[in-house]
Amino acid sequence: MTRAIFYKEWIKLRWLLLAISLVFAGSIPYFILNLTNKFRFAGKPHFWSVIVGKDLNLISELTYIPLLAGLILGLAQFVPEMQKKSLKLTLHLPHPEKLTILKMLLFGSGTLVSIFSITGLVLYLSLSIYLPSQILVAWFTAALAWYLAGLAAYFLAVWVCIEPVWKQKAINTLLAIAVIMLFFKGTSTYSLQYAMPLYIGIILLSMCFPFYSVFRFKEGVQQ
């Protein structure tokens, strides 16, 4: 039945997942071209010094992309479930309800993590042709926070989306925005390195939030 649930999510999300994958995959040649271009104009040694001296992060254009990806995926997965309350159909399946939701969340977050990690790894390996690990580790320390923000945004979007009452939806949205803001407080490449445990904690907590909305949906809470 896990396969059936994954099958449903796959049919629902495959085109979006393809689009997200393309954006992330497409960013890899973009970043490499961007870097080699700058090398050509400034010269490699000089540009290395600029990167180090000015704490430059050439993949910073990635900053909000994982956030958007998580947000859109979360909404695309659960807005159809909320249309005409068709989540009732899903919860009516002869399968434990919490497990059904958990598997749906696992599908969404799993695909997101796969896209992030595969494209992230390929980007790292491609850039390591041109740059030493000292620079790349710094860049990807900063980028890790952006990827984690995308994952948190996914769970928070689902939480807000399933919530049946509009007033509570608004409150949840504000809280979600506050949570997401925590991920974008970095000013230099390494400034978020001690915040990673917090971010992972937030993600683990926000995984539980959608279930609260499901409970409320199930109880038929209305204003």
Partner: peptide
């Protein structure tokens, strides 16, 4: 599994086609 439910407005997962939706439900 012994209760068949038809929601108001004949709601079904609308992103499926008739082959896919049969395949999905049959597993349950």
């Amino acid at each position: 599994s012994k209760v068949g439910l038809l929601l108001e407005g004949h709601v079904q997962h609308s992103y499926f086609n008739i082959v896919q939706i049969e395949k999905f439900y049959s597993r349950f």
